[in-house]
Write a protein that binds this DNA or RNA. Structure first.
Length: 267
DNA sequence: AACTTTATCAACCGCTCCAAT
DNA sequence: TATTGGAGCGGTTGATAAAGT
């Protein structure tokens, strides 16, 4: 007996989500939470697969999402984390508040990968190209060739035990020029400079960001939403939310709701 | 201006993981 | 312990925009 498909492929709609569908999904989750993704589409009146709803929510509609291009520091952190974790995009994303695994994966494949190759670094091994993976990695060879990404030296071998990195990784630092905002820089530099905090971030325990999301998930009480000024392109047409309410708060979640009609969200 | 190529990103697919039974 | 089914993850695709010729 085969396994039942997650949804009736003949009934479910595919392709880009419409504003109307977004509205239904947001409205339902705000009101009821997402108890069961499989059952959600029917309950919410959507002709979508539960998986599709989950993806849409986690990658696009979630209120704590920070959209727009990754800042230099975020990019640097992704490279660093990728060197430790490999293509574990969800784990990497969990270290970058407001970023999704899909977003990071896309960014890696479309931008970072190319930059690293351009710099003569193998994106998969993080070793210089034309060099055996086991050979000693010498970051000084790279610093002169890197344009806007600098690779930090790997201290010791990459180790991960049950998802928790050992101490010599936790003390690693990220260097490089940046073009992100002062607040981001301050935040990130504090993280990097605080070994204890960084060590904590390496652990698999729930991060502060995740916790804050959890806190705000019960109807988003007390959560501040903001528009990320850095966003660009198509993303600018969609809601940009973050729980911290930093970086200039000129577009709130409620504004977005207003576009649909606040009443539609049950407020 | 028209066409082609390249880049980007939202969304889908199929698989694995893991909790419940 | 084995089975089942939901959730989540990573790879890939396809549509669209932007850049180049």
């Amino acid at each position: 007996m085969g396994r039942q498909p997650c949804c009736d492929k003949l009934v479910v709609k595919k392709g880009p989500w419409t504003a109307e569908e977004d509205k239904k999904l947001i409205n339902f989750i705000l009101t009821n939470g997402h108890c069961c993704w499989r059952a959600l589409p029917k309950l919410a009146g959507l002709r979508r697969c539960g998986k599709s709803c989950r993806l849409r929510w986690t990658n696009y509609l979630r209120p704590d999402l920070k959209r727009g291009l990754l800042s230099h520091d975020e990019e640097q952190l992704v490279i660093d984390l990728h060197a430790h974790l490999g293509n574990k995009w969800s784990k990497i994303a969990s270290r970058l508040p407001g970023r999704t695994d899909n977003e990071i994966k896309n960014h890696w494949n479309t931008r970072i990968k190319k930059k690293l190759v351009k710099m003569g670094i193998d994106p998969m091994t993080h070793q210089p190209l034309n060099q055996e993976p086991n050979n000693t990695y010498n970051p000084q060879n790279l610093s002169s060739t890197s344009d806007d990404i600098s690779m930090k030296p790997r201290s010791g071998s990459t180790k991960e035990t049950n998802g928790t990195l050992t101490e010599d990784e936790s003390s690693s630092t990220v260097t490089g020029q940046n073009n992100s905002t002062d607040s981001e820089n301050h935040l990130l530099s504090n993280i990097y400079n605080d070994e204890e905090l960084f060590s904590h971030l390496w652990s698999d325990e729930t991060t502060t960001a995740e916790a804050s999301w959890s806190d705000s998930n019960d109807g988003f009480g007390g959560t501040l939403y903001h528009h990320d000024n850095n966003m660009s392109g198509a993303g600018a047409d969609f809601p940009i939310w973050s729980p911290e309410g930093i970086n200039g708060n000129d577009w709130t979640f409620l504004d977005y709701c207003q576009d649909f009609g606040v009443h539609d969200f049950g407020f």
